[in-house]
């Protein structure tokens, strides 16, 4: 799952970022469950509460092993040799900008709807919904921008090994 011990630290940093985004994506389902619980019966809401916790734990479970390995690499100074301005980090930054824009537009459009039709819903619903939109747009835009594979043979110029 983590690759070999001598993995290029920058390569590992990219994978950490990809799995962190995957964890964020899963977490968005936790917030979606949290928001949905206000639209169902009390009995069904209990299931959504459980789903919310399960998704949150699942999201953390995806990221935690990579994060622990990253901290270990930091301690052994292997991670410090990685250049922090690589392509995947650039994609992540762009995804954050995109997510900010989407959330802002969502809040502007959602405000009159909330003021007129959702006045009886608790504050938690709006917090969950906003967080869901924010991290869902972040993770989806990240996956879309980083999904294409260059597909090139990596060892084309390398001398054949004995």
């Amino acid at each position: 799952m983590f690759g070999n011990q001598q993995e290029n630290p920058a390569q590992f940093a990219d994978r950490l970022l990809k799995f962190t985004t995957l964890g964020i994506f899963i977490l968005s389902f936790s917030y979606a469950s949290g928001a949905a619980q206000f639209f169902v019966s009390a009995a069904a809401a209990e299931y959504f509460k459980v789903a919310k916790t399960v998704f949150a734990l699942l999201g953390a479970g995806v990221v935690l092993p990579f994060f622990i390995k990253f901290v270990r690499m930091k301690k052994t100074c292997r991670a410090s040799s990685a250049e922090l301005n690589g392509y995947i980090i650039e994609v992540y930054r762009k995804s954050c900008e995109y997510s900010f824009a989407v959330t802002l537009v969502f809040l502007i459009l959602f405000e009159p709807v909330a003021a007129n039709f959702l006045v009886n819903l608790p504050l938690a619903f709006f917090v969950y919904t906003t967080l869901m939109v924010m991290i869902l747009s972040l993770s989806i835009s990240f996956f879309l921008m980083s999904r294409d594979d260059d597909g090139e043979l990596d060892n084309e110029f390398e001398e054949p090994k004995e």
């Binding site: 290029n8 390569q11 990685a82 250049e83 392509y87 995947i88 260059d150």
Partner: peptide, 11 residues
Amino acid sequence: IGVSRKTISTI
């Protein structure tokens, strides 16, 4: 260089 292969290929 201290970057990922993806960084080199996209450059």
